[in-house]
Design a protein around this nucleic acid. Structure first.
Length: 948
RNA sequence: GCGGGGGUGCCGGAGUGGCCAAACGGGCUGGGCUUAGGACCCAGUGGUGUAGCACCUUCCAGGGUUCGAAUCCCUGCCCCCGCACCA
């Protein structure tokens, strides 16, 4: 049925398509692909699988260029692998939960679900318009209850294993909106929406115990084919450090304070201890004492401070003496204990030993509060004087003032002191991680409800599995501040599943990063109703072979997804450790924007007048900048596609820069590639529609098939290396030749053959044009997108290179003549005699020719020429040529150049090509027949040229 | 501060030990085509000389390794990105 559409009246169609109409062509093929479910994938044990995945998008109102780049890259790879015979899984879905939908509800009264679905459909249409080869039957969206049900299921499984737990934690709280804010929503210490100062309050929150996997997450990085920078980011994020635990006994109590330090060598320099103000011990100590009120004030001050954006690097050190003392584990000295803003409760034990002489923060604190500074590490090249020190010495050195450890270097001392502490049972070696447990509670509506019930009698009660999903209620009221879910009585009020008494439902929802931590598994069996995924199918497809997306997910999403994979493995769902074998973070897309060098800033459109800066009047320049609405340098892919078509958009984006590099968007590039494609299209259809074929083969036919095969080889190699830029440029380079070829009256059979391979070569880059060209002669074989990739074989380009060198030489001479005011109309090409040939070859044969040419010297060639009665200087010239151009040597051993008459016939064959490229009449003559004084200069493979 | 990635022609960018004055594209210059512009085609685009070639100067700066370096090593300068009071 559908195919008939393409079949329709051929002649008329060709007339119509004489000029390139990307919209018509592209929509036509997209419809056919869809109707015939061309890209639907099923598991097939006989085929090798390939899972190509792009980070699923948040469905905002429309596609942006970042998406365009992401999907162009992914589709190019997916199509190539598919044609190479892999069973390719290439799915798409939507990260559909999240704040923007809820904000739309609050601001414009939209229904989050409707709003989200409207966006999904818009985005999807735009994706389809790009010609992406997704298996749309696998589409998922995280806001579907069939999907988020399994978030809840996994949560319950983790709860069982103690991997999900509830803990009090300080969070950003807006007292006006009555909600928790994410860090990104706190601007200058104020709520982003109502500008009320944000408070730090303690709330009971749900956490996932990612720290339990810290070590494995770190070790696992080794095995991944990920860019170094992403691995490093994750390493830093996990932040493993080796150090020592040290116990300080409290004076007047049997309690011990434990600290973590990476510098146990400085232990004897400890002059005070510092505890995080929010640490529970601090509160306990002041409770009921005279200090309590003042401490509360201090605590609030510190808490409000930490919310603020850190505009200055130097945060003022603030402290509070807690009227407590501890005992130094080795010297038994009495050491004061302070609370201070620079100590973080979440890291280590929340208590640090302060060594002012050797730590800058401690130093500043000691100076401010008049605490002693004790030097215990002596640098190698100068002497420290605590009285005169202006800042701490943080380097390593030799220990002093450290009893039996004096004289040891830092490294040895670290070990020795720790061992000593171990024997005293006052400490030991320890490892710390910066990675914090993952707080997943969000006081938000548009997310996965956390499946837990609170009962006064039974406490925290998990929702029974068979009651899942806990559905998000619809038609909720967004007019009141706070979490809308908390106001839905029918949702909140439930019976306790254990005792049947009145209970309350958890109203927090999950962080949307939970959704994106396993969606790639769901794609493997998206319709599965009874379990999160079909294990067998997952094990067929997973792990993802290539994962493409933005670098902004280097830590959050990519760590969470790895964590989830490991948890699910331990829960028995999976048998592998890592979800993404290879990661390709695409570069950003920038575009030039007006910039004033004097003001040193980018200028929004309204600040530029007549090419000058409105502020200072100096001439503006253009500089590459991140796309932003305010600078007005945003590119809308929708517009590009409407105007030039998806194929052009894809070419532009792939050719502009390597996939991992940042690229500059330039509208001129789009024009350029549009011209290339439309030129190609017109050329092809002008041949086909006018049937203007030659009755015999010409050198153009020979070159066309040769270059096409070489293009296949080059493109295949580039694609295998994921060098999509080189690949598309190779395609373009052949396209350029092919366009010219079309106007050279091709020989029909060759033309068909070449066009057929070329159309396949085009598929990963310009799939619509590919189908269009393919269908001209191969309709019966089905879609180009489903064909096998053409066979890749390196070609012998000797003749092609020879021809081009000859043309270059002729043009060179022509230019020189022009400079002298002479005009040439005819070129005579003089082929070297067989004596010369033999003279050169005999030397080459006498020793094995190698690439380094050092084994040869000019004299041997001169002698050889002399022996044949030739000018020895020519031998030297030939030698130099051979040194410069190693191909020439290889060429001499080829049949085509083995005799003068062979070379003569090659040049004869090339003469029409040379004529076209030089605009000169060509005549060819053998050296012996020539009377020209230039004739003697001819060398085998390098004929002499005479212009007149 | 720590960690990562970079600095190549007018520009975007290849190249990572010899075929490199440097792919490919853009721009610019000249020529062709054209009523003109655009489009298209051809040539040129570090310097000097030159009949297809020779020499000189170049790949941030300086030093080194090598018969030979844009490419390897060291030093310095600059740019971008990530983390940032992590004890």
């Amino acid at each position: 049925m559908a195919r008939q559409e393409v079949n329709q009246d051929k002649s008329e169609e060709h007339v119509k398509q004489k000029s390139y109409d990307p919209n018509g062509i592209e929509v036509k093929w997209q419809k056919l692909w869809e109707e015939q479910q061309v890209f639907k994938t099923v598991e097939d044990d006989k085929k090798q699988k390939y899972y190509c995945l792009e980070m699923y998008p948040y469905p905002s109102s429309k596609l942006h260029v970042g998406h365009l780049r992401n999907y162009t890259i992914g589709d190019c790879i997916a199509r190539f692998k598919r044609m190479q015979g892999f069973n390719v899984l290439y799915p798409m879905g939507y990260d559909a939960f999240g704040l923007p939908a809820e904000n739309a509800a609050i601001m414009h009264g939209a229904d989050p679900k409707e709003w989200t679905w409207k966006n999904i459909n818009t985005i999807k249409q735009q994706q389809k318009r790009l010609g992406l080869s997704y298996d749309w039957t696998r589409q998922i969206q995280s806001c579907d209850e069939e999907y988020y049900k399994w978030n809840q299921y996994f949560f319950l499984k983790m709860l069982e294993k103690g991997l999900a737990y509830r803990k009090k934690s300080f969070v950003n709280w807006c007292p006006h909106c009555k909600t928790v804010l994410a860090n990104e929503q706190v601007i200058g210490g104020k709520c982003w929406r109502c500008h009320t100062p944000v408070q730090q309050i303690e709330l009971e929150q749900w956490f996932l115990n990612i720290r339990r996997y810290a070590e494995e997450l770190l070790q696992g990085l080794e095995s991944l084919d990920w860019p170094e920078r992403v691995k490093v980011m994750q390493k830093n994020w996990i932040g493993k450090s080796f150090g020592t635990r040290i116990k300080f006994k409290m004076v007047d109590s049997d309690e011990y304070l434990e600290v973590f330090t990476t510098r146990p060598d400085t232990l004897f320099g400890v002059t005070f201890l510092v505890i995080a103000p929010e640490h529970e011990l601090a509160r306990k100590w002041v409770k009921g004492t005279a200090l309590e009120k003042e401490f509360e004030k201090f605590l609030q001050e510190v808490l409000s401070e930490s919310v603020q954006e850190r505009t200055s690097l130097e945060v003022v050190k603030k402290g509070f003496f807690l009227n407590k003392y501890a005992e130094h584990p080795l010297t038994k000295e009495k050491i004061p204990v302070y609370a201070a803003n620079f100590v973080l409760a979440e890291y280590g034990s929340g208590i640090v030993m302060a060594v002012p002489a050797h730590d800058q923060r401690d130093f500043e604190f000691a100076k401010k509060y008049g605490l002693p500074i004790k030097v215990v590490i002596q640098p190698h090249d100068f002497e420290l004087n605590p009285e005169k020190m202006l800042h701490a010495f943080e380097g390593e050195g030799v220990l002093i003032n450290s009893q039996e450890f004096n004289g040891l270097d830092s490294t040895t001392a670290k070990e020795e002191i720790t061992k000593k502490l171990e024997t005293l049972n006052l400490g030991g070696f320890a490892v710390e991680y910066k990675l914090k447990d993952w707080l997943i509670s969000r006081q938000r509506y548009w997310g996965t409800p956390i499946p837990v019930i609170y009962c006064d009698k039974c406490g925290i009660v998990p929702v029974p599995e068979q009651e899942l999903p806990v559905k998000l209620p619809e038609n909720v009221d967004f007019s009141k501040p706070g979490n809308p879910l908390a106001n839905v009585e029918s949702f909140v009020n439930v019976k306790c599943p254990v005792c049947g008494g009145n209970a309350r439902r958890e109203t927090d929802t999950m962080d949307t990063f939970v959704d994106s931590s396993w969606y790639f598994l769901r794609y493997c069996s998206p319709k599965e109703m009874n379990k999160p995924f079909d294990k067998e199918k997952v094990h067929y497809w997973m792990p993802v072979d290539i994962y493409i997306g933005g670098i902004e997910h280097a830590t959050m999403h990519l760590i969470y997804a790895r964590f989830f994979t490991k948890v699910l493995r331990d829960l028995g769902f999976l048998n592998f450790d890592e979800p993404f074998k290879k990661l390709v973070p695409q570069g950003m897309i920038n575009k030039a924007a007006p910039y004033c060098e004097k003001c040193q800033s980018f200028l929004p459109p309204d600040k530029v007048k007549d090419g000058k800066c409105v502020v200072c009047g100096s001439k503006i320049v253009f500089r590459s900048a991140k796309m932003s609405k305010s600078l007005g340098n945003v590119v809308d892919p929708g517009e590009i596609i409407n105007k030039y078509g998806a194929d052009t958009a894809r070419f532009t984006i792939l050719a502009a820069a390597n996939i991992e590099r940042d690229m500059d968007w330039d509208d001129k590039d789009v024009e350029h590639w549009f011209k290339v494609l439309s030129g190609l299209h017109e050329a092809v259809f002008s041949v086909v529609s006018t049937n203007s074929f030659n009755t015999e083969k010409t050198i153009y036919d020979e070159f066309a098939s040769l270059l096409c095969k070489q293009a296949v080889f080059n493109v295949t190699k580039a694609l295998e290396n994921l060098d999509l830029r080189t690949a598309v440029l190779e395609v373009a380079s052949f396209a350029k030749f092919f366009t010219q070829y079309c106007f050279k009256k091709p020989y029909e059979q060759v033309f068909k053959q070449v066009l057929t391979s070329f159309s396949l070569l085009l598929n990963p880059f310009a799939p619509h044009l590919s189908e269009e060209f393919w269908s001209l002669y191969n309709k019966s074989k089905g879609f180009a997108s489903l064909q096998s990739w053409p066979k890749s074989e390196e070609q012998d380009l000797t003749i092609w290179n020879f021809a081009n060198k000859l043309i270059e030489d002729v043009n060179n001479v022509k230019r020189l003549m022009q400079r002298k005011g002479l005009k040439a109309s005819k070129a005579t090409i003089i082929i070297a005699s067989d004596e010369k040939r033999e003279a050169l070859i005999s030397v080459l044969k006498s020793k094995q020719w190698n690439n380094l040419s050092v084994e040869f010297n000019a004299k041997e060639f001169a002698d050889s020429f002399k022996n044949k009665g030739l000018n020895p200087e020519l031998g030297v010239k030939g030698f130099k040529k051979l040194c410069k151009n190693q191909d020439l040597a290889r060429m001499l051993f080829k049949k085509e150049f083995s005799t003068s008459s062979e070379e003569f016939s090659i040049v004869k064959k090339l003469s029409s090509f040379i004529k076209d490229k030089t605009g000169l009449k060509i005549s060819i003559i053998e050296e012996k027949q020539s009377s020209s004084d230039k004739a003697v200069q001819a060398l085998p493979g390098s004929p002499s040229i005479v212009l007149e």
